[in-house]
């Protein structure tokens, strides 16, 4: 474990807490893409299949459980909770995310580290996480102005993988046989997808103005 990775995990946790705060405090999920939340639930369920087979550390296991439970809880809340469900932007959140799931799964069947059930699902989860934010970014562009908590949620979500890239660079130079091309390249793609959001987020912060993405 290094400082970059720990900072990344904490930033990821913060993004989830901000989202939970937004939904719980405002009893609303307006501006939040249910499709992105569903993709994240699939990402964690597919990636943490080793939760019961490979014990790494208490920290690792606890965080896996937290990520799985929180992502499933958010999807459940957006689908079932009466008040929250009513505020869901159903007509704006129309990205066909099933195509993303299919494409990532086919790609994982082609490109993986080992052709085993667990490794293919791990690669699938890495590819899917890279594109999971797309429905959310599309929704933000369509809904114009973005409320603060939603903006902060997306910001921390993007920042966590950028910190992981620093973690991979650090491990590459400090560990003998460190090769994690699948995660590295996917992480670069994932972070690049946030580039324009980060740009407009920085502008809104600098000008102390409301964050609004050009349509």
């Amino acid at each position: 474990m290094n400082a970059f990775r720990l900072a990344g995990d904490i930033t990821h946790l913060i993004s989830i807490l901000v989202l939970l705060l937004k939904i719980y405090a405002t009893k609303s999920c307006s501006g939040i893409s249910l499709k992105t939340q569903e993709l994240y639930a699939v990402v964690f369920l597919a990636r943490y299949l080793d939760l019961f087979t490979d014990f790494i550390s208490v920290y690792n296991s606890v965080m896996k459980v937290v990520f799985i439970l929180s992502s499933v809880a958010i999807v459940w809340c957006m689908r079932r909770h009466r008040a929250v469900k009513r505020s869901y932007d159903k007509e704006l959140d129309t990205f066909r995310h099933y195509y993303l799931v299919g494409a990532c799964f086919v790609f994982a069947l082609l490109v993986h580290e080992k052709f085993t059930f667990q490794e293919v699902f791990w690669a699938f989860s890495i590819y899917l996480e890279a594109v999971a934010i797309i429905p959310q970014l599309v929704l933000l562009q369509r809904s114009g102005n973005v409320d603060n908590l939603t903006g902060q949620y997306v910001f921390f979500l993007g920042a966590y993988r950028a910190l992981y890239i620093l973690n991979w660079i650090y491990r590459y130079f400090t560990e003998a046989k460190f090769s994690r091309w699948i995660a590295c390249i996917s992480g670069l793609v994932q972070t690049a997808l946030y580039a324009d959001f980060f740009y407009y987020y920085f502008l809104s912060w600098k000008n102390n103005a409301k964050l609004n993405l050009p349509a």
Partner: peptide, 10 residues
């Protein structure tokens, strides 16, 4: 097992 297989990250 998972550690050297590179699956020690979240």
């Amino acid at each position: 097992a998972a550690a050297e297989a590179g699956k020690d990250e979240l």
